[in-house]
Design a protein around this nucleic acid. Sequence first.
DNA 1: TGATGTTTATTAATAA
DNA 2: TTATTAATAAACATCA
Length: 422
Amino acid sequence: MLPQKLYTESSMSTASSNAMSAMTSTYSMNTMPMSSMNTCSPQAPAFGSSIMNSGMPMTTMNGNCMPSVQMQYSAIASSPISNMNARMSSTMSSVNGYGGVGGLSGRGDLSGGDISPNSALQRARADKTYRRSYTHAKPPYSYISLITMAIQNSPQKMLTLSEIYQFIMDLFPFYRQNQQRWQNSIRHSLSFNDCFVKVPRTPDKPGKGSFWSLHPDSGNMFENGCYLRRQKRFKDEKKEMQRASHKSPSHGGDTNSSGKKTPIHHGDDTHKSHHLDKTAESNLMLSIHPAAKLDVDQMNLLHHNDLNLHSQHHQQMGEELTGMLNHCHPLALNSDHQAMLHHGSMSHHLKQEPSGYTPSNHPFSITRLLPNESKADIKMYDMHYGYNSLSPLQNSVHAQASIGNDYYNNPLYHTPTGTTSL
DNA sequence: TGATGTTTATTAATAA
DNA sequence: TTATTAATAAACATCA
Ligand SMILES: [Mg+2]
């Protein structure tokens, strides 16, 4: 429906090529483990460590020294150009994804004088290379968290597969490469994980696949701040049962695993009965006998409508963490932006947030991207760091975080005071 | 026919 | 160490 930016994979990386596998399957720029400073040390983030530790003053570091994805991003995004040269040697070697960066060797600036006539050119190239080295590095998010971001940032809290693709590519240049590879993983993740459920299309929205939404009970799967590895993956009881019975038909009714423990999030059982009630209610409204059997997809549709109508269940989780997360999540985008993108939709105007989260502060919400007062911020940012936050590539009609408005180009993805933990 | 889903298998990284 | 989570590949089915 909306124009989508097409990302053609550069000749550098063939989709089917295995030549790049080493680069893409590893966390390219990682050098040192963060575990010492991190409660939740995920797979080594693709970003940061070498750069973070290259001697640059961490102006964004706040008192508690909480390490975070956000901070790592901040550190990178805010790295003064003046510091680039100093890091160039190590950076350059990182560009190919194999940061030999063991020990941020490039402390010393090569060529002390550096006043040659082509130094400007070299500098420009170096800067470009440097920036690409992180904008195209693998983001420190699992596919599950990326999908979750996409869905939760959508007005209807559901997206088609291709829209999920698009969201990810818009935000992370890294994923404009090797599309066949990671998109297969996305599809696998959607199918395999119970936290993602299909919502069938309604007749008024014909099209190819169905919509994907979040399981009503999946809660905040990332409230621990780890976006690479959850402590426990969400499992839908019913599907668990199905799987079990499918495997060993002898297992008929025993069902409930005594030790069944839902993740960390809260509010599971509470709205469980609530859900059933709502379903029955919906059935009545739709002239469906409450006892009538609906298939899974239909049920999901009803549930989704219900949730969308009343409130976002997902946002009532993790309130205890909001203080930490909601002010600083790396992907807190702006609702205005979203309004532009989906100008045809007005649903988000009507949404209320009875829980702790508002559309603007919950961890994955698109809010605060380019709010009014941010003009000044951008200016400051640009002046200080020499970034042009407004993309030079404006050809895209797509108002979303398309070209030039990706995670790295938008300073507001990196809140200076952020303390999102990772 | 290509996009969309489902499923199984393998492997690496991380948590317990 | 073992158990769990996630990434990746791949075979296969289905659908517009
Ligand atoms: Mg699923």
